[in-house]
Design a protein around this nucleic acid. Structure first.
Lengths: 188, 188
DNA sequence: GTCTATATTACGATAGAC
DNA sequence: GTCTATCGTAATATAGAC
């Protein structure tokens, strides 16, 4: 920490907020609920975050870091196809959460992109990062239509997350990841 | 109308609400805004809808009717593949709206499915109807894996809507519909 | 049936004691 | 740096005149 505030509290607030924003939605989540979940007095939240939007921004930044870490952890895999498949499997692992509350990255975009302050752009960052990364993988597979394939791939994941959520059925997510995996195998 | 209330007002309120819920989101839209857009006094809304949730329910029912009408209008097409392609093209036509505010059906699901009252189930109906319809089309094409293909198809549409929205780029939606169209052509 | 005025409540944010 | 008490505002919903 750069200042002398209690190290744990800020992090606890961000973690609690991330969880609640995902499970309840941005607008439905109150500062009081976040404070309560993090065992911090309500008013004290404003010592760490000037406004609710500031707290939301911190959650988005946290999600963006998660995505970068996720992609970094895939670098060890031998082939681009293996990396893409491994990424898709992340959503299979999250399938119960996805079926109940939607994709943590996707729902954030949908909830925030109708604003015209900076938050809409920031919320879209995880999506943009993954899309660019997937494009690189397809390009490394020698495909000239890498961007189109990257969109088809990640749209397949995000769309399946929405359908799994609508139907409250984790199997929809898992089935689609299997479908995408087989599709990628036919490309290489 | 079954009762003797002014026929235009209720319909105007639902239309104004549908538009605002899509463009601003459910929680961000107030009764006063809807009333204002429909040129109806704020308090008078409660004569037509007992609660805000009642108004939202009316909007969802309207969207469900839109979907049924859309699917009905596709029955004239000669082949299942032509029907599926024509459906996908609806999103290409909506691409500007989709890039700015998301898919009108998809965003409604994402915003409402975290609730446990009845609204979450109702909001998912348009999705379920389209998915079942798509499954029928693939089955009519002689495919035994019709459900899997229906999920892949509609997830491709909904996911692309989310990506187009995140990137604020209508071309993403149009490009993915072209991609899906070519994919369907390879199946028949 | 239609509309105005207002009650009620809930939340974001602040002031100020410790 | 921490916490309590509270202010101000905005939105849902209602009461009641016309």
């Amino acid at each position: 920490m750069t200042d002398s505030t209690t190290p744990g509290k800020r992090a606890r607030l961000v973690a609690a907020a991330a969880d609640l924003l995902h499970r309840q939605g941005v607008q439905a989540t109150t500062i009081a609920q976040v404070a309560d979940a993090a065992t911090v007095p309500t008013g004290n939240v404003y010592y760490y975050f000037k406004t609710k939007d500031d707290l939301i921004r911190a959650v988005i930044d946290d999600r963006t870091r998660q995505v970068r870490a996720m992609l970094d952890s895939l670098r060890a895999r031998r082939s681009p196809a293996a990396r893409l498949t491994a990424l898709a499997n992340q959503w299979t692992e999250m399938r119960e959460l996805v079926a109940r509350y939607g994709c943590p990255f996707g729902t954030l975009v949908t909830e925030l992109d109708r604003r015209d302050d900076g938050l809409d752009v920031e919320a879209a960052q995880p999506i943009g990062i993954i899309l660019d990364w997937a494009e690189t993988q397809f390009r490394d597979m020698g495909r000239t239509d890498a961007r189109e394939l990257a969109v088809a791939f990640f749209a397949g994941i995000q769309g399946a997350a929405l359908l799994a959520n609508a139907l409250r059925d984790p199997a929809v997510m898992a089935g689609q990841v299997r479908h995408l995996t087989r599709w990628i195998a036919t490309l290489s």
